[in-house]
Amino acid sequence: MDESLRQYEQIDNYLKGKLEGEALEAFEKRLQKDRDFAGEVEIHRKVIDGIYAAQEEEVRELIMEADDEVENPELVQKTFWGLYSYAAVITLLLGIGIYFIFFYQSKPQRLYEEYFQPYPNQITEGTRGSVSAILTALPEPQKDTIIRAMHAYENIDFYTTVALLETVDLNIKSYPELLFYLSVGQLGAGKVKHAISNFRQLKKMPDQYFSKEIDWYLALAYLRSDQPEKAKPHLQSIIQNRLPQMQEAKSILHELGE
């Protein structure tokens, strides 16, 4: 069992991204050469996916019941009137709570929340060839980390995105596209000072893919940090240059009393 246990732990560590250096290299070599071993790794991955699915099945059932309640309210009212009215009260109170939180934010921060959307993932899901080409140019360990970071990004898990991108063992600043996603992740994760500093650095770089987005995210970052005066020039620049976010920039400026 020892050998089997050792292999199990090794696969576990690989899938968790914990294998490094020579161990990782040897593992990946074996993965390429040994089809049975590659099969074992895939089975392992499937079992872990199954564990996740099992944890979430109960919640899935729960929310599907909730769908029924919303879609067939008469049925639910007849059957569970007491429970339903209780739920309605909870909803109302929850709504009041959220309303309360909403109005305790400053206006710029509320505008940030209203308008912030992470830029679509062009690294692993993209159609912009030269952006997604970054992946093919990178060695395996970095590539894997970036794929996981972008997966987290898609799930709005910005803490993981930032943590992973910050560990990429290369000068991320020489890859403006990655720096861009790191900055958006930092903004989403609340590391606003870092985000502003990186966006400003990106703004100085000529001819990079996301140049049309930088003013927009800089403006949002200033709104998030409650500095509307610093956001305004970037919003005005968007309007002057007729950038894609022109309408949104106009609306925000209007809200800010410009």
């Binding site: 959220i98 912030f116 799930n155 910005f158 803490y159 993981t160 994760a189």
Partner: peptide, 20 residues
Amino acid sequence: RLKKLESSVKTYLFQIGKFK
């Protein structure tokens, strides 16, 4: 992975939803 909500639940859910 999500230890602290930096925005409202609605914003968070809508962001994921829009992405998907």
